Amino acid sequence: MNKRKPGFQPGQSGNPAGRPKGARNRATMALEKILEGDAESILRKAITLAQDGDPTAMRLCLDRLMPSRKDRPVTFDLPEIQTTDDLPKATNALLQAVASGDLTPSEASDIGKAVDAHVRAIEAADLHQRLLKLEEQTAR
């Protein structure tokens, strides 16, 4: 027996708009309230521990001062892709960059997605031009 609340359809969110922008998590707000008066002294203690060589406190302070980057700019020679015939040169350049260690596999994958989108745009433009030519020919 299926026990659904009336008015809700399968696959339909009860809150389609999602959480409003700027809304804060209740647990975060509760922790902030608890730490409200002690945050500065706790921070000073963490800094003192880090200065005294505590590796956990060091990591905590460094993570806040300089968070790890999600992405990094990558530089490598990617041949220009003007037609779909240029695609094998581009994918070969990606594979060579991974093989030589210039790119990580995940970086190559991300770049490959961009290359794929570019190729699809070339194909769509080419198809559009072909349709225009066909329409011109049939209009005569």
Results as ranks from 00 to 15, higher is better:
Gly53Glu: 04
Met58Cys: 10
Lys33Ser: 09
Met66Asp: 11
Ile42Val: 08
Asn92Tyr: 08
Ser109Phe: 14
Ala125Asn: 14
Thr104Glu: 02
Ala30Glu: 09
Arg24Thr: 02
Ala17Lys: 15
Ala27Tyr: 12
Leu127Trp: 13
Leu62Ser: 14
Pro55Asn: 00
Leu103Gly: 00
Asn15Cys: 07
Ala23Ser: 13
Pro6Leu: 10
Ala17Met: 13
Gly11Glu: 02
Val98Tyr: 00
Gln82Trp: 10
Pro105Gly: 05
Arg4Cys: 06
Lys113Val: 06
Gln129Trp: 15
Thr56Cys: 10
Val98Trp: 00
Pro16Val: 05
Ala108Ile: 01
Lys133Arg: 13
Ala17Tyr: 10
Gln51His: 13
Val98Cys: 00
Ala121Tyr: 04
Thr83Lys: 09
Pro10Lys: 03
Gly7Met: 03
Ser106Phe: 11
Ser68Leu: 11
Arg140Glu: 14
Gln9Cys: 07
Lys33Arg: 12
Arg59Glu: 05
Lys89Met: 04
Leu95Arg: 15
Asp86Ser: 03
Glu32Trp: 04
Ser106His: 13
Arg59His: 06
Lys133Cys: 08
Ser68Ala: 14
Ile42Met: 09
Ser13Lys: 06
Lys113Asp: 04
Met58Gln: 13
Glu36Asn: 12
Pro73Cys: 04
Asp110Leu: 06
Ser68Ile: 11
Glu40Lys: 08
Pro67Cys: 02
Gly53His: 03
Gln96His: 07
Ala108Ser: 03
Ala108Val: 00
Asp85His: 12
Ser106Val: 11
Pro10Ser: 03
Ala121Arg: 12
Lys133Ile: 12
Thr75Ser: 13
Pro16Met: 09
Gly11Asn: 05
Ser13Glu: 06
Ala97His: 02
Asp110Cys: 03
Ala99Asn: 10
Ala90Thr: 06
Leu62Tyr: 13
Ala117Leu: 10
Met58Thr: 09
Gly37Trp: 06
Arg24Ile: 02
Thr75Asp: 15
Ala46Phe: 07
Ala30Tyr: 09
Asn15Tyr: 08
Glu107Phe: 01
Leu78Lys: 02
Leu127Asp: 14
Gln129Lys: 15
Asp54Trp: 01
Asp71His: 12
Arg26His: 14
Thr91Gln: 14
Gly22His: 01
Gly53Gln: 03
